[in-house]
């Protein structure tokens, strides 16, 4: 590096898909958070009932990162799963989870986090309780079920009514996780406000 004449950095052509270093880190870390919350024993919410906290990570990704980054973090997680890392709850992974009866729920995570982020962050930087509650319920439960149930019905060749009925078995757990997500999100706003700031350089 002998040439010391330095030109001002030309304005980089920023493509539609451009994400900067801070985004890369946050997207990757939220994919990892969701994977770690799926590890057995990560977080025993319901005593001995083997329900994992993985969907908690899904809902939090949208609520914290916002629509695009949240959805991308789910895409990253699912690509890693497809490439064979056992990152889904119970140590599942590989292409096979995308051809099984629960595949629709996984795709639902992507759309769901996007919807959560879009609703929760609709008012800019200030998060409100009502919007967070609506966002998590609509994106985290309604959207995910709306995609998950038809795919299950399709894969198992079952009528959609009974399939939906079967899915409601998990509804109470998902409602509890939605409630936890709302509380955690509103607490994080105070405990780590930086996470919600979109300007990457506002930090010491």
């Amino acid at each position: 590096m002998t040439d010391q004449t330095v030109q001002p950095t030309p304005v980089k052509p920023v493509s539609r898909w451009h994400i900067d270093a801070t985004d890369i880190a946050r997207i990757a870390v939220f994919a990892a958070i969701t994977a770690v919350l799926g590890l057995p024993g990560a977080f025993p919410v319901f005593g001995s009932v083997p329900i994992t906290a993985q969907t908690l990570g899904v809902m939090l990704a949208g609520a914290v990162l916002g629509a695009w980054r949240g959805a991308l973090s789910m895409v990253v997680l699912l690509v890693l799963v497809a490439l064979g890392l056992p990152l889904l709850a119970g140590g599942h992974g590989g292409l096979s989870v995308f051809v099984g009866p629960t595949a629709g729920y996984l795709f639902g995570w992507i759309v769901g986090t996007f919807v959560i982020g879009a609703i929760v962050h609709a008012g800019g930087r200030t998060l409100t309780w009502p919007r967070t509650i609506v966002g998590v319920l609509v994106g985290g439960i309604l959207v995910v079920y709306a995609i998950g149930i038809p795919v299950t019905a399709l894969v198992l060749r079952l009528p959609i009514g009974p399939t939906a009925l079967q899915a409601t078995v998990f509804l109470p757990f998902d409602l509890i996780k939605a409630a936890i997500t709302v509380v955690v999100t509103m607490t994080l706003v105070r405990a780590y406000p930086r996470a919600f700031r979109m300007r990457p350089r506002d930090r010491a």
């Binding site: 590096m1 330095v6 030109q7 001002p8 950095t9 350089r201 930090r203 010491a204």
Partner: peptide, 26 residues
């Protein structure tokens, strides 16, 4: 990594904010 709110900075003849790519090389 942090932009000054006021004042000017020069590092090896480079402005860290306006010539970020050059700064990274140095």
């Amino acid at each position: 990594l942090v932009a000054p709110s006021r004042g000017t900075v020069s590092v090896l003849g480079v402005d860290p904010q306006r010539q970020a790519a050059a700064l990274r090389r140095l």
